[in-house]
Computed example of a mutant assay.
Amino acid sequence: MNELYMTGAEKNRRSRAILVMSVLGILIIASFIISMNTGFIRLSPLDVLKTVFGAGTDKQELILFDFRLPRIVISVLIGAGFAVSGAIIQGISRNPLSDPGLLGINAGAGLAVVLYISFYPVNEAAPLFFMPFLALIGAGATALLIYSLSYRKHYGLMPTRMILVGIAVAAGISAAMLVLTIRLDPNDYQFVSIWLAGSIWGTNWKFVLALFPWILILLPYSFAKAKVLNALNLGDQLAIGLGARVNKERLWLIAAAVGLAGSCVAVGGGIGFVGLIAPHLARRLVGPQHQYLLPASALIGALLLIVADTLARWAFQPTDIPTGIVVAVIGAPYFLYLLSRSK
């Protein structure tokens, strides 16, 4: 919107959003630096600085560039992806308590991976690098099933029905995964259990390169659709009156949300609650308009996951715990709080 036509309230809202996102950016940078120093083998800030500029030892370079930095970057990308996916789904369904996990998208990605591992051992190189594509296919197939069951010819996609169908589909997929995991080899079972708990297992630059294009393409696309999401929040009739092609736009937005969630699940496993908490916190900080809500959600999701992953690496040294467990410890009480305040 041209600044000449902005009201005082709109200018204040934009200024507040810029301030909030600037603070979040600073917190992410600070968390990034702290995370580089944190681990079983501690690197002081001076050691990190020396290593970044090429003056560190071979051991320090190995720790920082080959292990920590890829994991930290992946945490940022996954947090932003899950958060924006959750914000899109909440905008489409007009329900602040929905997220990719609730709609079964995460479960669908997990089922595809478990099915593949049932036939191929995880100690082979090919399955490990093929899993992101499988997770994306599983998430897409699940979303397509939910969409087809929620769509009615004369009414289009019904948001409330979509949530109920998603919960039912997620429950069925979880039951199928339980049956499949019982039949796995012990080594494969251990890998799947840790992966489904939300372990960021793809901790090298190849996985960063595999995930980055999805984030690079789908985040800007989602931000560009902010006005469409604003219109959809007003209800289908008003959105149509404003010129939005409701069913077509909703389908493309669901595809973007699935692409973000599926690619993040592939590398980060079944990390839940980020897509629920981040948009809700962003809505409290910058308001419901998606041109501010989506980027703020991405920043909050990135901050939440980088902090959770740092705690997962630090809390029980020398053993790492899955990042998803730390996020669940934070997210479950907050979800219950939201549920208690929901009308």
Rank of each mutant, 00 (worst) to 15 (best):
V265A: 13
L218Y: 08
V267E: 06
Q60V: 04
V113T: 05
I240P: 10
M162L: 03
M158S: 09
F67C: 06
T51H: 07
L134E: 00
R13W: 13
E124A: 14
E10H: 06
T181C: 12
P70D: 05
I92T: 02
L103P: 06
V48E: 14
K227C: 11
K227M: 12
N247P: 02
Y334A: 07
F130G: 06
G39T: 00
Y5D: 02
Q291E: 15
P70F: 03
A197D: 08
P318N: 11
A328H: 00
F212C: 06
A107D: 06
T181H: 08
I28S: 13
G275F: 15
V329I: 05
A83R: 10
Y221C: 00
G110D: 04
P322E: 00
F129P: 00
D47V: 00
S75R: 14
G79T: 08
E3A: 11
S193E: 08
S297I: 04
P279A: 10
L339Q: 08
W214Q: 10
S222H: 03
G166D: 03
F212Y: 08
G140P: 10
P45G: 11
T38C: 12
Y116E: 06
Y116S: 09
V286S: 11
L196H: 09
R14F: 12
G25P: 14
I72H: 07
A256S: 03
N95A: 09
